[in-house]
Amino acid sequence: MSWRIIPLELGRLSVFAKVLAWDENLNNEGDTRRTQVPLIGWLLINDQTGEKLLVDSGGGEDEEFGRKYHNPLICKTENHLDVALKKFNTTVDEIKTVILTHLHWDHAWGVFKLPQAKVIVQKAELQYAVAPDAKFIRVYELDLSHQIPYFMRYFNHIQTVSGDVDFADGIKLLFLPGHSAGSQGVMVDTSNGKYIIPGDLVNIKKNWEENLPPGIHTDLETCYASMKKLREIAAENKATVLYDHDIAAFEQLKHML
């Protein structure tokens, strides 16, 4: 069974460059350089059955909210999830399953546009999200007293998995903690071989080429262990690792568009 992977640009974030790639040989404390990165959702279309799944759903459409509580966000009309899906002849009602690599707001807010979808996350991620370390409270919006955390508002749609899971024919979930406590990747069989959507373990091309874990992480040692595991799986399966917050991902998959 093979799938087509279509990357959807669901907006852009302005972030500190140091949050994308960690380099323990450099002192990044005073580094205030910013860069724009894409928010990418990954539409999976089954070549045989036409079934459609989504991996990650973006950070929502409210630029003012993003700027106030997270990072400067650009989300033009063409970046709205329903509009981005429509470009590939897909409606939000057709998406019955969304796999979240993790529950950080910029990957998980867009679920609100998918009323029919069940939400697949690692059990460890959900457990951590409700009681994270203090420095990660904001990315799960637990500090916003005026509203219930976003993922709790679709809690009854969440289904958890644990560890590496053969999720569907041609789709395997890979437990890759480190960026968050329960991050996961998604390995997908395509007619051009296997591809791995790694979540924010591999934000940009530099992470993969220089073996640099993400600058935001719950545990650095766990990040390195997950990077090692990812490399072994990629080598064993001759799989291409995609870049989760890098415009280069669109070049990686241009033959599928």
Rank of each mutant, 00 (worst) to 15 (best):
Q116K: 14
L103W: 03
T101D: 02
A134L: 08
L114N: 09
K118H: 12
R153L: 04
I120P: 11
A117P: 06
Q127R: 05
D189V: 04
A168H: 07
L142M: 11
G170L: 01
L100Q: 13
R138A: 06
D169V: 08
H107T: 10
Q184P: 06
Q184T: 13
W105E: 06
Q184D: 10
H179R: 04
D164C: 10
A129M: 10
Y140Q: 07
Y140S: 05
D164P: 13
T97F: 00
K123G: 02
L144G: 01
A124D: 05
K194Q: 07
T160M: 14
V121N: 09
V161T: 15
H179M: 08
S180Q: 14
L173W: 14
I196V: 13
I197D: 01
K96G: 03
M187F: 08
D106E: 05
I137D: 11
F175M: 10
V98E: 04
S191D: 14
T190D: 07
A134D: 14
Q159L: 06
M187A: 11
A108W: 02
S162P: 00
L173A: 09
A168M: 11
D166C: 04
G178E: 00
V111G: 07
G178I: 00
G170D: 06
E125D: 13
K135E: 14
V111Y: 03
V130G: 08
K96H: 00
D164G: 07
I171V: 15
G185M: 08
I120Q: 08
M152N: 12
G163D: 03
D106K: 06
I171L: 13
V111K: 04
M152L: 15
E125Q: 13
S180G: 14
Y128L: 03
Y128D: 13
L174R: 06
F155A: 12
S145Y: 10
H102V: 10
W105D: 00
Y128T: 03
V111P: 03
N156I: 00
P115L: 00
T160R: 01
K113E: 14
V165Y: 12
F167H: 07
M187W: 07
L103P: 03
R138E: 03
T101F: 02
T97N: 02
V111N: 03
H102R: 09
I137R: 15
I158H: 14
L100D: 08
V165L: 12
Y150I: 10
D189H: 15
L114I: 09
D106T: 04
A134N: 11
G193A: 01
V139D: 02
W109H: 12
P177K: 01
S180V: 14
D106I: 07
D106R: 01
V186Y: 11
L176H: 09
K172D: 06
H146M: 05
H157D: 15
T97S: 10
G163C: 11
V186H: 11
Y140F: 15
I171T: 12
M187H: 09
K96N: 03
L144Q: 14
Q122D: 15
A131I: 02
A129W: 10
L144F: 13
Y150H: 13
D189P: 06
A168S: 12
A129N: 09
Y150S: 07
A117T: 08
I197S: 07
K194F: 01
R153E: 13
I196P: 14
N156C: 04
I197N: 04
V121Y: 04
P132H: 04
S191M: 07
H157G: 02
I158T: 12
Y154N: 11
I197T: 01
L144I: 15
K113F: 08
A181T: 01
